[in-house]
Write a protein that binds this DNA or RNA. Structure first.
Lengths: 336, 336
DNA sequence: TTGAAAGCGCTAACAC
DNA sequence: GTGTTAGCGCTTTCAA
C-alpha cells in the first residue's frame, strides 16, 4: 500500500501541528487527552506507522541494545537473552540480536554492523575477541558488557563466571566421591572458547589432585551437539575402556554420550559415570538424570540488564559481576 | 569515547568532500582506488563508524528483513532463521529477529515495533494473527511471508505446510503397521497454534480410519517442553494404560514421554509406541530413536528468502510454496 | 571521478 | 498545551 503517510498527514487530518503529533506518540503528558485521542484516531484511520529511523536520527537515541550470542539454538544463551530482554523492557529498551555461529570473524563483522546502528549499549558473549573487535568496542563510547566469562582484562563491564574454575568444581566433586580415571570430552577447538576454557580448567584440576590427564577426547567444531558427544564417547569406550568417569563440555554432548552407553548396554553410572554442563532441560528429564552445573544463564542476562540500566543512568567505573554456577548432582554419577 | 566523528570529519582528514566519502563506503566503483584508500585510512585513524540510521533515513532503504518467531530456543525455528539469513546475506540483507513467547498480543506489539523500523520485508511464523496484526501487515506495503503453515487466506506470501495434514501422515503410518488405540499429547492451548492444528489433524485422521478419539492428553502452555511430555505420559499411563501408541506434539515432549516410560521400566515400543514431530537432533540420538516427521525447517527459511528476493526484485502475485514434511521411522514405533 | 545543494521524517529548543 | 524553526548525518540529484 501507500507507505507515504507521514506525521504531517496525521497532523493535517487531526488539525494540529506535527509537533503535537510527535508529542502524542510519546508518553508526553503535555498533550490534552482529547487532542491525543483525535490524533490517534486520525493516525489509525490513515494507517500511519511511526518512523523510528527518523526519530532516532534526530533524537540521537535508538532505544535498543545490541546482543551478540554464538548460536540461536542454545537454551543457555536463549535464557540469557530472555533475562536481558525482560530486564531492559521496563526502560523501553529493545534487544537487537545477532549470532556469530561461533566464528570470531563473524563476530567482528556483526559488532561493526551493530555499532553502525548506534545501539545504546552492546552485550557480547565471552571474553575473547579479535583485536579489531576490541578496538571497535572500546571506541564505541557506549557501555559494553562481556558475559559468560570473567576475563582478566575486560573491555568494560563483565557479568559471568570462570569456565575453568567451574570445571574444577566438577572435578573436585568426582574425585571426592572416589573417581580417579576421569576423561574430558570437548574443548578442542578455539572457536568454542568457553569449551576450551573448561578443558583448561580440567587439566588444572586434575593436576591439583595429582591425577594424570591422559583421557582427552576431541568433540569437533562447535556447536557441540549430542551427536558429537555420542561419537566422542564411542571413541573413548573403544580406546580407553577402563575410564571411570567422563566430564563433557555440555549437557548436550553428555546426553549423546549417555545414549551411546545405553546403546551398548552399559550401565551408567555403574560401568561409567557421566557429567555435563549447562543444566539444560534434558539433564533433568533423561534417565538417569545428568550430573551437571547450572551456570544461571537467565541471571547472567538479568544482571547484564541491571548493569546497562545502571551505567546509562549514571556512568561509572566498569563493573565486574561474578555469577556462581552451582553443581547439580544427578543419576549419571555416584554422588557420595 | 567521542562518538562525534562524522563523515565530514573523515572528508576533511582525507581532503575530499563528504559525498566522496559516502561513495567510498559503498561498493561504488566511481571512486578512484587510491582516493578510497586514503579515505579508509582516515576513517580508520579517526575511529569513524558509519551511521546507518542517517543513511536509512535519506535513502529510504534499511536493508533488513524483520523475522518473528515464537521462541528463540527452538531448533526448528533456529534452522528456519538460519536458512533465511544465509539466503538473504548474498543480497546484503540482514535479519532483525524478534520472538513472541507464543503470545499473540506480543506478536502484535512486535510487528508494530518492527514496522516502525521500516524493514524491506517481514516474515512471521504461522498463519494466525490478531486482527490488528493482519491489518498492519496488509497495509505495510512490503512483502509479508507467513511460514510454518499453509493458511487458506494468507496475508501475502506463504512458505510452509499443513500441520493438520502432516499429522494425518503419522496416523496413517501407525494405523498401517497395526496400532489402533492411539493417543495424542499436546495441542490443547490456543497459544500453540501449530500444536492445535496437529491435534485437529489427529482428530480428523482417526475419524478417517473409523477409530475413536478417546485419548487426548493436554500438555499445557507452550513452549511444550520435555517435562510437559513426561508429565503428560505419566497421566496417560495412569489413566489409560491400555494405550498402544502415542503421538506427541513435538520431539521434545516425545522424548520426555520416552524417558517417563524408561523410568517406569516400560519397553518402548514393546509396551507402548511413541512418535514425535520436528526431527530435532534428539530424535536421532536417543535410544531408541524417535519416529518423527521432518518439517524441513531450514528449507522453509531458504524458500522464504527466495520469495523475498524475488518479489523485491520484481513485485508480483502472492506466492504459495508448499513444503513436504517427511516421515522418519525410528525405534520408538514398530514400522512394519 | 568528484562536488554542492537540498532534503529524508522526525524532535530539540525555544516561544507563546 | 501547542506551534515554529532549525537540523540530526547521511544520500539523491544535478552539475562539472
Amino acid at each position: 500500500m501507500q507507505r507515504s503517510i507521514r506525521m504531517k498527514d496525521v497532523a493535517r487530518a487531526a488539525g494540529v501541528s506535527v509537533m503535537t503529533v510527535s508529542r502524542a506518540f510519546r508518553a508526553d503528558s503535555s498533550v490534552k487527552s482529547n487532542t491525543r485521542a483525535r490524533i490517534m484516531k486520525a493516525a489509525d484511520d490513515l494507517g500511519y506507522v511511526f518512523d523510528s529511523t527518523a526519530a532516532s536520527l534526530r533524537s540521537q537515541r535508538t532505544d535498543f541494545v545490541a546482543v551478540i550470542i554464538p548460536s540461536l539454538n542454545n537454551a543457555n544463551f536463549a535464557e540469557t537473552v530472555g533475562g536481558l530482554s525482560d530486564g531492559l523492557a521496563e526502560s523501553g529498551l529493545q534487544v537487537l540480536l545477532g549470532y556469530t555461529g561461533y566464528d570470531i570473524a563473524a563476530e567482528e563483522r556483526l559488532v561493526e554492523q551493530m555499532l553502525r546502528r548506534r545501539p545504546e549499549a552492546i552485550v557480547v558473549t565471552g571474553g575473547r575477541h579479535s583485536d579489531r573487535t576490541i578496538r571497535l568496542l572500546r571506541a564505541a563510547g557506549i557501555p559494553v558488557v562481556e558475559t559468560w566469562d570473567l576475563p582478566d582484562d575486560p573491555i568494560d563491564h563483565v557479568v559471568g563466571f570462570s569456565n575453568a574454575a567451574t570445571t574444577q568444581v566438577m572435578v573436585d566433586h568426582l574425585v571426592g566421591v572416589g573417581y580417579r580415571r576421569i576423561a574430558f570430552i570437548g574443548g578442542d577447538r578455539d572457536g568454542d572458547t568457553r569449551g576450551a576454557d573448561r578443558r583448561r580448567g580440567f587439566l588444572a584440576a586434575m593436576a591439583s589432585h595429582g591425577l594424570p590427564v591422559d583421557r582427552l577426547v576431541g568433540a569437533g567444531d562447535p556447536p557441540i551437539s549430542m551427536q558429537h558427544g555420542a561419537d566422542a564417547m564411542a571413541r573413548l569406550l573403544d580406546g580407553l575402556p577402563e575410564t571411570e568417569a567422563v566430564i563433557c563440555v555440555s549437557d548436550l554432548s553428555a546426553f549423546g554420550a549417555l545414549a551411546e552407553c545405553q546403546r551398548r548396554g552399559l550401565d551408567v553410572p555403574g560401568d561409567i559415570a557421566i557429567a555435563g554442563f549447562g543444566a539444560y532441560e534434558i539433564a533433568g528429564v533423561c534417565h538417569p538424570t545428568l550430573t551437571t552445573i547450572d551456570p544461571q544463564s537467565r541471571r547472567i542476562g538479568a544482571r547484564a540488564a541491571e548493569v546497562i540500566l545502571g551505567v546509562l543512568d549514571a556512568p561509572g567505573a566498569p563493573r565486574r559481576i561474578a555469577i556462581d554456577p552451582r553443581l547439580i548432582p544427578g543419576g549419571t554419577t555416584r554422588n557420595a
